[in-house]
Nucleic acid binder design. Structure first.
Lengths: 354, 354
DNA sequence: TTGTACGCGTTATCAA
DNA sequence: TTGATAACGCGTACAA
């Protein structure tokens, strides 16, 4: 084997052209005569040169073609959430035309403290831009340093300073619609199953104090919407958004004496679990209990139910984030966007039983 | 605003030291006197310098700290699979100590053909290494060029040339164990629900021709294990690994005259769906029908069932891939690994009804 | 259409 | 403990 990788200079020399010409052959930025191109390509083949070194190209260009995505959980957990998956899909799509790929990063504020592993960070990775998805407030510092480096940042469903473009949802209004819907059906005994209230993710009934101390934006906003219509509805906080958590919640809800006739769940997965718990308890949905979800995602295994829910434009959110990144990379500035959910009536809600 | 970002040279000049000294202050590779360090740090703060440009550092070092991960589907679909999630988690962990992050790449062979979007590829991204997860054979070409560039590659559950380290599972033996288990319970009328047979992902009953034309390794190997014990079991191919697909399969299986008393599903999700379909059809599990899964993952919403299944070391696979990458990056060479599944008996299998 | 010259921002090496 | 030097491999004005 040879001692060193071939560079474009080697190729140029072998082909008998200048390095710039060889470069142009690969980038296609400038017309090159067919004869020259062939000579260069042949030389490249001979030398085993497979194209410009991305590292060098990236230094020269000032672009790496990499967009960092910061998730607030470890991968598996983050992607457990269908909304996250859809949003990532949208982001992937909208970022591809930029010639960029997504680099998975973790919110160091939550992890790095534990043990001092290195790992790529917002500050050490060769990023062209960064997208923060639903990250905790603690990451402010990294955010600051990234912005200091002049790297465009977009925040999706998270709490960032006001001068960062944000992609958000009308969580409160949307949840209010669902509550209205239930009230219109005559429901008065309604319970709410919430997403985690804080990073601690404590599960169980929620008292006034805990309710006042909610730190997760999404949870707080959706709850506010429910409260607009049902100020006194009892609250059960789940530890995560999953069917199993919904089942746990449902069991608790349906166990007591004053069984609710309707449940506002803050996610479709939770709603699916609540429905499962209802069936398990011999309650029929929606005859005995109405259940609403939130997100409008496909819940694997929920058929034949079709949830009454708020459909959120999940992949559009990702796409919007990508577009914002593209805009900023382009020198334009990106505005924050507030997406709207659509109420969709399924077969899981019905008139309140008398 | 100033005209240009500060560089380490600017910082050095301001601090009255040489660039190399300033560099060392940031990298910590060499002891520096406290006084000097302070001067440099102060200068950096003054100039708004937040640390070395990763692009330049990466060119100089010859390392980017990025490991590419090629998935054979779009993100959302890939992460729909719990095994993929776990594997990615393991990979993330084992790659973090390397100071590396994961860059999400798509199998261009499947996508690029469609439309000619640029997007990051195996060949244009600044990768230190690449991990291919369950990718189709078509990607051979990219694989070749990557290897030509001297980039270490590891393949997980996919079909690559023999000279690439592979991380695989004893699919056949494992599935055979499940089949043995069923035979031990006296089952003779057994059906198999498979993962997709080919990239086309056609759903339905499988004839001999189709069975002979299976292109997906995992599917073929697991089926072989089932065939070792039940050479004549009827086959239903699902279009993906999901509960809903399992339901569809189950309905088909339980509709016919010769209803099977046991079902070997090639994934836990499929098994969960089959169970759901059984319940739906008034069959009790395991009294009327036994069902086995494959993977040993937590299926959200499956409780109170605990599947009889083959537990595969999913995150270990990811970790092994990361370790292999680390080894190769280190100049050592990495061997292929064959992981073993563990049979776990749950409450979804029982004696064949008489 | 092709070639020349230079700099992108760092860091490894070695000498002081 | 610090500093000088020399790449790292490429792209792009600009000139020819």
């Amino acid at each position: 084997m040879s001692t060193r990788r071939a560079t474009i200079t080697d190729v140029a020399r072998t082909a008998g052209v200048s390095p710039s010409t060889a470069s142009v052959v690969f980038s296609g930025k400038t017309p090159v005569s067919d004869a020259t191109r062939r000579r260069v390509l042949d030389a490249a083949a001979t030398l085993g040169y497979t194209g410009p070194d991305p590292r060098a190209a990236s230094l020269r260009r000032g672009r790496s073609g990499i967009v960092g995505v910061v998730l607030d959980l470890h991968l598996g957990a983050a992607f457990l959430d269908p909304v996250t998956r859809l949003t990532m899909d949208g982001l992937t799509e909208s970022v591809a035309p930029l010639g960029a790929g997504l680099l998975l990063l973790r919110d160091r504020s939550s992890v790095a403290a534990e043990r001092d592993e290195p790992g790529p960070t917002l500050t050490t990775a060769p990023l062209d831009a960064a997208v923060l998805m639903g990250c905790s407030g603690l990451l402010r510092e990294s955010l600051a340093s990234v912005r200091a480096r002049g790297i465009p940042v977009v925040v999706v469903e998270g709490d960032a300073g006001s001068d960062v473009p944000q992609i958000r949802l009308d969580n409160r209004e949307a949840q209010r619609q669902a509550a209205h819907h239930l009230r219109g059906l005559g429901h008065t005994r309604v319970a709410v199953v919430t997403l985690p209230l804080t990073d601690e993710r404590a599960r169980g009934w929620v008292g006034a104090d805990a309710e006042a101390a909610i730190t997760v934006d999404v949870t707080r906003d959706r709850l506010a919407g429910a409260r607009d219509v049902y100020p006194d509805a009892p609250l059960w906080a789940s530890a995560s958004s999953s069917i199993d958590e919904g089942v746990t919640a449902g069991r608790a809800l349906f166990a007591g004496p004053d069984r609710p006739t309707a449940v506002l769940a803050q996610s479709d997965l939770l709603a699916a679990g609540v429905i499962r718990a209802a069936e398990e308890g011999g309650l029929r949905v929606p005859d005995d209990v109405s259940v609403t979800g939130f997100d409008g995602v496909v819940v694997d295994g929920l058929a034949p139910y079709s949830l009454t829910t708020l459909v959120q434009p999940a992949s559009e959110k990702g796409r919007a984030a990508g577009d914002a990144v593209a805009a900023m990379l382009d020198g334009r500035d990106a505005a924050s966007i507030l997406f709207t959910c659509t109420f969709r009536e399924g077969n899981t809600t019905g008139p309140a039983p008398r």
